[in-house]
Design a protein around this nucleic acid. Structure first.
Length: 145
DNA sequence: AGTCTGACCTGAT
DNA sequence: GATCAGGCCAGAC
């Protein structure tokens, strides 16, 4: 993490607009897919990176989801990255926000209780992107049904 | 062209 | 139960 000159701007600070008019045949970059799913997250609810990766039609790893979130602020409309947490329910990406506490503030604002940088009742506020057979979600919410 | 990193997850020790 | 290591795909230098 030290060899990175610009930790602030992930995509060379070119923002997501880099592909502006270059999209035509296959505009469905894995970025767009993640954004689309993240935007579908209802208010007061959170999901995990792995769940999004599973919901994506394309083969994708949870890591890529987080990486794609880098452009969330640049994406339009802005993607509610604060509603996306890791499988543990921790606000791992809070430090990537404008302020480390912004993520928690937003979550609490929507009614999500955050304790110690972790979502309380994570399983309760957990929301599935739409993939019922989510392996990860199955384990997390296995006792849901 | 090769190397490394990355807001993760899963499995094994 | 906690910790370590590996893996996965894509992008940037």
């Amino acid at each position: 993490m030290k060899k990175y000159p610009n930790p602030k701007s992930p995509s060379s600070s070119k923002n997501a607009a880099t592909k502006k008019k270059t999209e035509d045949p296959k505009p469905v970059s894995f970025f767009d897919v993640v954004y689309k799913i993240a935007r579908k997250i209802p208010k007061g609810r959170v999901t995990t990176y792995g769940a999004i990766a599973e919901a994506a039609d394309i083969k994708l790893t949870p890591r890529m989801v987080g990486w794609a979130m880098n452009g969330a602020g640049n994406a339009k409309p802005a993607v509610p990255a604060h509603r996306v947490v890791n499988r543990n329910g921790e606000l791992s990406g809070r430090q990537f926000f404008a302020t480390p506490t912004l993520m928690q503030e937003l979550l609490e604002q929507e009614g999500v209780t955050v304790k110690n940088d972790k979502v309380s009742d994570f399983k309760t506020v957990f929301w599935s992107p739409g993939k019922p057979k989510a392996t990860t979600a199955t384990k997390t919410v296995k006792k849901k049904i």
